[in-house]
Design a protein around this nucleic acid. Structure first.
Lengths: 155, 155
DNA sequence: CATCTCATCCCATGCTATCCCATTAACACC
DNA sequence: GGTGTTAATGGGATAGCATGGGATGAGATG
């Protein structure tokens, strides 16, 4: 599966449009929906972004009642209620809605931040600060990343 | 499958008509019945909405409701008794019946709230309150969402 | 059988999002 | 170093959507 990698800073024009980074578009090309899905982060002043297929997986997970607590159900419902389908135009641009931009404090530039299976959208300076912070903590605590063994065929 | 995402607030005109959000109509387009199915929520002051195909799945007792007990099957029967088929007009509007509106306290505006496989219809301010509540709880308890592995190829 | 009421259809309108075309900039390739 | 290609950006034109109101027809009611 294609992953969202790297960070891209793009401008917002006066119509409210932003180019989705070409590599992100390529990663989303496999899905049926030509665009992105965006919702406000619960924990940070940023926008969570993903593809429609990711939402469908969330929906599948939400149907397995045993796996979900009430809290988790509420949270999933909140995501669905808050998520917007943002189709891109022929040039690969999307219009980020006002309220979502406000939540992230975005005005004229946005940072698309790859997170692997998903990505985030930040006010560029805000992300710089957060990144520096995480990087500083990593230096002191030396975390390790667990690696899953390869399932069967190539990932 | 097409999901119901995002929240849309629309007006009710003096004839009692409301536009079903275009994206919801698109999600329902796959079904045979050109309209929505609506019934009063058991748990909240809102209206549950879905497509006819979802009703059929409810009838089969298949997929979505594996985990339902006998008691919950009785609930399903109640749903059938309460549910209304609301076809939309050529412009995509439906007329929500009086008693259903009363149950949700709706007078002049309605909020269509996407829930993934289904959606809900709320009095806009009432939904705002509920949403704020859930969002606040999510912040404190920080639940995590289990994600099903991708159905097809490697993750 | 006449009339009334309500629901549906049809047409009109304002706003906004979307499409299409043009321009600039960056990179790669020759 | 020159050229071709792709990505990001800007702006005018168009189409779609939410909404309002009149007209028409079916069923209810007297």
């Amino acid at each position: 599966m294609a992953l969202f990698l790297s960070t891209f800073v793009n401008r917002i024009d006066k119509k409210g449009r932003t180019s989705v980074p070409a590599t992100f578009r390529a990663a989303l090309a496999a899905g049926a929906f030509p665009g992105i899905v965006a919702y406000r982060s619960f924990t940070s002043a940023c926008i969570e972004g993903c593809g429609m297929d990711f939402m469908e997986r969330l929906s599948d997970g939400a149907q397995a009642f045993d796996a979900f607590s009430d809290e988790q159900e509420n949270l999933a419902a909140l995501i669905f209620a808050d998520a917007r389908q943002l189709p891109w135009d022929p040039e690969g641009r999307v219009s980020l809605p006002e309220d979502i931009l406000a939540h992230a404090g975005i005005t004229e530039s946005v940072a698309f931040v790859g997170k692997g299976q998903t990505f985030q959208i930040w006010q560029p300076d805000a992300y710089k600060a957060v990144e520096a912070d995480i990087r500083a903590k990593a230096l002191t605590s030396r975390p390790t990343l667990p690696l899953r063994p390869k399932p069967v065929a190539g990932a």
